[in-house]
């Protein structure tokens, strides 16, 4: 059974059962052993592969060499025939026949090495796929276990600390209120800065004799002097 299928089956049970059963110690051990075995067989296959590929190359070189020699001796045999040296041509033909036998053997060997190479490559590919698959299965099991166990620890921790978990709505409200409070405070402090800034500016202007505040005293004095000059106006 695939690990995801197993988790789906376990999901029908309780969270605690999932945490406790998803990593089946026995199955995990088997997977881990199979991973170790597969890694070992890859190592061995890689080392044989290098050896077999070297032999394939050697056979290939022998084939090329033999083909060259055969062509060489065949042309010598032809030359002997042309010079009506039948016996000599016969002797060279014997040599060519022996070389042809060697060539055939080397070709067979090269063919056999080539097929061994492809077999070993297939074997490595299969072992690597197996490792990936088992590692993924173990990862699914262990991740599921750790998520459920972590959730259990977190619940237990909240239980021990005595603080009850607030509902999501309550949490959201509290966070929002705090943010609003923060935003209000920011706004208030900006306003305060502005006001203080305004006052500072106004007093600087007054000191420089600019604006209404600057000549307020003078205006009052002028009004008083005007009243003093014409005291009867008011009566």
């Amino acid at each position: 059974m695939s690990m995801i299928k197993k988790v789906v089956t376990l999901l029908r049970g309780s969270a605690r059962e999932i945490a406790e059963n998803v990593v089946d110690a026995n199955a995990t051990r088997i997977y881990e052993q199979e991973i170790i075995d597969a890694k070992q067989s890859i190592l061995e296959a890689r080392s044989s592969l290098a050896d077999v590929m070297a032999r394939e190359m050697q056979a290939g070189r022998a084939v090329t060499r033999l083909e060259g020699e055969i062509a060489h001796f065949e042309s010598l045999a032809l030359e002997a025939l042309n010079k009506t040296q039948e016996a000599l041509a016969e002797e060279v033909a014997g040599k060519v026949a022996a070389l042809e036998q060697d060539l055939e053997e080397q070709r067979k060997a090269r063919q056999s090495f080539a097929s061994q190479v492809s077999q070993l490559k297939e074997l490595i590919k299969a072992a690597e796929a197996k490792i990936r698959e088992h590692e993924r299965e173990i990862a699914i099991a262990k991740t599921t276990e750790s998520v459920y166990k972590a959730t259990q620890s977190i619940s237990d921790n909240i239980g021990h600390s005595g603080s009850r978990l607030a509902s999501a709505r309550e949490s959201l409200e509290r966070i929002k209120q705090r943010h609003e409070h923060l935003a209000d405070r920011l706004q208030a402090s900006e306003q305060l800065d502005r006001e203080l800034g305004d006052k500072a500016l106004a007093s600087k202007l007054a000191e420089a004799g600019i604006g209404q505040d600057a000549n307020r005293q003078r205006q009052v004095m002028e009004r008083l002097r005007a009243r003093q000059a014409k005291p009867t106006d008011d009566q």
């Binding site: 173990i138 990862a139 262990k142 991740t143 750790s146 998520v147 972590a150 966070i175």
Partner: peptide, 18 residues
């Protein structure tokens, strides 16, 4: 800070960090 009601929990298994 300010989001104490929504803590993040970090855990890790042999294969990943969650």
């Amino acid at each position: 800070e300010g989001r104490e009601e929504l803590p993040i929990y970090v855990t890790c298994s042999d294969s990943q960090i969650l």
